[in-house]
Design a binder for these strands. Structure first.
Lengths: 247, 247
DNA sequence: CGGTCCTTTGACACAGGTCAAGTAATGTGG
DNA sequence: CCACATTACTTGACCTGTGTCAAAGGACCG
């Protein structure tokens, strides 16, 4: 817990893989100008922070619940999702080590969060963290950077959901996994796909069957190869990228 | 320009409708704990800020362009959108007075922005604003609040695009307009719909024809009434809300 | 091994897309 | 203020991509 393990180290673009107690707010990915926290900042954060480990398929929090904590993921993979009253589900994101979750607009969570694989998280008391923010300007800036990044990603997702075809969506998903999950696959170049077909479907706004058919199609065209149910090898990443971008 | 006009005043939940020069970063809507800027903060912002007025259907900036400025909208309505290489378009948001645009992840805009109606904007030099942020903590907090709000809205939009039916999408759109545009309609309770059918379609991930058919359907069922092409009256807002929520 | 769950595959249905025509709103020049 | 052109919207007929339903593998597990 809190160990600068390989996964965090791989994803963190900003500091060496040594042990850091408040590491998770450092392990921000894809955010420019992301300096690591100072010892002072870490000292301020430690008291309101606990680390926790969870198995696969565990609920972290539910949509509508009071947002007592915010989290950063250090190991594993998480899905976040919303539901309509009749049960329809939209997965609004898959999260990777270094990602932040629980930042809220009002007092309660706007979505549910569930682990896909065994995971380790850093948990912060939300209200206390918010109070600390004013005296930790670097941290606040980092959160703003992460939020901007998330907004951009959300807009890409809207493009996908509103205007891409099923094949384009599945290709986009594979490309995304391959980028985001760099390092989570094995040495053979295969990438880990820990989520079920219906998770993928609910992420892409499709049905399980359509996702399966697209996988089949890509397999037939030699764009991918399935190592096993949970591992895919992108045989022609460039072609997939072309499909994903919409011809 | 910069006048605390009725529109800004209506939308701003946080301060009285007096004249404020750096008003636009105050005129934040739906953000908790949003205190107005101090005179000191305004003094810091004024030098890097200019105000501008634009006609309808004017391009503000384009996807991919270097992001020199960030803006706040004070009067009017704006659409922001992305395109696929073959021209397919997704409108990722309609913006109202008080909304912020141009916050970016990297150095260039991730989307294009275009006015729908005649509009007034406040323009800030992005890099200078970013440098100022550290010394204007309240402002930074406000941006973080706006960003959180936007993320929540984006997730709702993903639910809409991924899982709602055409009728539910159009109903959601009308409810959104009616909430967001409170005050932009006339006294009769009609709400302004300044965007074209194909704008609405590109926002909802549908075609113009389907949007038109849904309007027709709602009209037949007495849920709405069209005052003219650009004004709609919600006859049964509760029923629409029910449709929007997904039964 | 037999059961459970997940995935794949097939046959068919339908929501929403496409194409095309008609109608209303808006603008323009005289 | 009126012809006329232009653009936006509506409506209809038809088509297709994806959803639905059902059954048949496969993988995992006690």
């Amino acid at each position: 817990m809190g160990t600068g393990n390989f996964s965090v180290a791989t994803r963190s673009l900003v500091h060496a893989p040594h042990r850091v107690d408040a590491c998770e707010l450092c392990a921000v990915r894809n955010v420019a100008a992301c300096a690591p926290l100072s010892p002072y900042e870490r000292r301020r954060l430690t008291p309101i922070m606990t680390t926790l480990g969870l198995g696969a398929q565990r609920l972290i929090f539910s949509e509508g619940e009071p947002a007592i904590y915010v989290f950063t993921l250090t190991v594993g993979m998480i899905k976040i999702y919303k539901r309509l009253p009749d049960g329809r589900r939209q997965i609004t994101g898959f999260l990777f080590p270094g990602d932040f979750l629980g930042l809220v607009d009002n007092r309660s969570y706007a979505y549910s969060a569930e682990t896909l694989t065994g995971s380790k998280l850093c948990r912060f008391q939300r209200e206390k963290l918010e109070m600390l923010l004013s005296s930790l300007p670097k941290l606040e800036r980092r959160l703003l950077g992460m939020a901007s990044h998330e907004i951009a990603a959300a807009q890409d997702r809207m493009m996908l959901l509103g205007r891409k075809t099923a094949r384009e969506r599945v290709a986009s998903f594979l490309v995304m996994l391959s980028n985001a999950g760099a390092g989570t696959g094995d040495q053979s170049g295969a990438i880990a796909v820990p989520m079920s077909r219906s998770d993928i479907a609910d992420y892409l706004g499709l049905t399980m069957e359509t996702v399966s058919r697209c996988f089949g199609d890509f397999r037939k065209r030699q764009l991918i190869e399935m190592v096993d149910g949970k591992r895919v090898c992108l045989l022609d990443a460039a072609a997939l990228q072309r499909v994903a971008a919409g011809s």
